[in-house]
């Protein structure tokens, strides 16, 4: 999207209203939102629920978005925060068997792939914050500055968390290699 030319924030009330433009943008973003939630949560069903929740939050807060070009950073932040909240809740409920939860309507192959893949396992073993930085850096291909903007962290914090995330990943992968060699 070309920056500076969109009139998203100018209140033009023509055929596709601001809300409609927002919907279009959000719908186009949906796959990326779900992907981000999948990597952060590691579970497609949980990710679907988180994505729905994040999109509902975004819709309710849409008036606070001033510029269309900042849409992705803005909604990324909502998805990440929603996922982190869910992870915190999940930790508290870790020992409760959620047998009654809705089955995911997406094929549950993603979690299986993560579990089979050494990098996937190492990724899931990171802290949520570290995993988020790694996913945004290497899956979304964002710069450190863009990550800092999305997470509202100082740039130094992003660098630090990415560094420790990579250290942890390397250690985990090397452990995996040693186990395979045995």
């Amino acid at each position: 999207m070309a920056s500076g030319e969109d009139t998203f924030g100018t209140g033009i009330d023509h055929a596709l209203t601001r809300d409609d433009a927002f919907s279009r943008r959000a719908d186009a973003y949906l796959a990326r939102a779900l992907g981000l939630a999948c990597y952060l949560l590691g579970d497609p069903g949980e990710a679907e629920d988180a994505t729905q929740e994040a999109m509902a939050r975004a819709w309710r807060a849409r008036r606070s978005l001033r510029q269309l070009e900042s849409f992705e950073a803005w909604i990324d932040r909502i998805v990440v925060n929603t996922c982190w909240e869910r992870l915190r809740r999940t930790r508290r409920l870790a020992e409760i068997n959620l047998a009654g939860s809705n089955p995911p309507s997406v094929p549950d192959t993603f979690a299986a792939v993560l579990a089979r893949d050494s990098v996937g396992r190492a990724l899931i073993a990171l802290t949520p914050e570290q995993r988020t930085v790694v996913v945004l850096r290497f899956w979304r291909d964002l710069s450190l500055e863009q990550i800092a903007d999305r997470l509202e962290w100082p740039l130094g914090t992003v660098k630090s968390r990415l560094h420790y995330a990579l250290v942890a990943l390397r250690q985990q992968l090397e452990r995996d290699d040693r186990e395979v060699d045995r």
Partner: peptide, 9 residues
């Protein structure tokens, strides 16, 4: 990553 399902939309 999975594509958004019809249910999610």
């Amino acid at each position: 990553t999975p594509e958004p399902s019809e249910r999610l939309r």
